[in-house]
Nucleic acid binder design. Structure first.
Lengths: 169, 169
DNA sequence: GTTGAAAATCGCCGTTA
DNA sequence: TAACGGCGATTTTCAAC
């Protein structure tokens, strides 16, 4: 369903999201139109969900990163509270976890004061029992890049520690 | 240093990373060449770190997401262990935290067996004292998109829960 | 920042294996 | 079904203003 060439295309795009079709075509040794069609298919199937610019958070006013564990009272299988948490601006990620804490959130805030406001918003959501927050001092690596090269030997080597050596926050 | 127009450009790109220069130019009401120059400047200054395709992990063989806390023995201010942890394939994020746990890692693995291997690699790094892992059952939201609209009123409205309604893992 | 023009790319479609 | 090739529309990119 998803062959080696697709893997190479995905591998390129997860690291260099704006690589032109023409360049990808050259990399995989196919006609640009063929690559275009593969990309479309991958997007249509949902394998490619979209493309994001990677910004340096502090440069756009978000100096604080934190992870918050939220314990919630809700029926098994329901994720309504998780959805409500996800809607709070500054919440980048919402994971429903296996532990006793129901949710693990990744949050970005402008400063500690802003973080406090966000935590208050969490508390105001019905069903949220309590929260526990860990503030990040420094982010050493932050990427989406999966080690696709490991399995299919796509020809591209594993990238190490490369991407995003972030500055202090 | 970074004006409202830059913010609009960044806001567009963090959600639609492959938006063409021409489209961005139309959105901000400027000539394409001007937008191109702004983007180049933003990349050169490091505000834009790069572009990533957002892939659905399970479609490329990574069905498991986990967060691992690592306690490490190392001198204050040193992040050598963090760098070693970052080099382990499957480690997407490495955060140095303020808590008693030294590092918080975001990890993606193919399956539980693979996760075990990764945790063993952590344990093999000198200075790593112990690890504690929380497995993610479902990811409700996973994005990089910062609520830039909040501060400067760039004209683009806040995006809610939109991006990435992910399937179970 | 804008304009304008050349080079490259995009993206559709008919053809082919 | 998937890839190729061709071609017009669009975009990228650079120079001059």
């Amino acid at each position: 369903m998803i062959d080696k060439i697709d893997m190479t295309i995905l591998s390129i795009l997860q690291d260099q999201g704006r690589t032109s079709n023409a360049d990808i075509a050259r990399a995989v040794g196919m006609a640009p139109s063929a690559v275009l069609e593969r990309m479309r298919k991958l997007e249509r199937k949902g394998v490619i969900r979209g493309f994001e610019a990677v910004l340096r958070p502090k440069d756009v006013g978000f100096a604080l990163t934190a992870f918050t564990f939220v314990r919630a009272d809700e029926g098994v299988g329901s994720t309504d509270i998780g959805k409500a948490l996800s809607r709070v601006p500054g919440v980048l990620e919402t994971h429903y976890t296996a532990g006793q804490d129901s949710y693990l959130l990744k949050v970005r805030a402008r400063d500690t004061e802003h973080l406090q406001l966000i935590l208050q918003e969490f508390g105001a959501i019905p069903g949220v029992r309590d929260t526990r927050t860990t503030v990040v001092l420094t982010t050493l690596k932050e990427s989406r890049s999966l080690p696709l090269a490991d399995d299919a030997a796509t020809g591209r080597q594993e990238q190490r520690g490369t991407t995003k050596e972030q500055s202090k926050e």
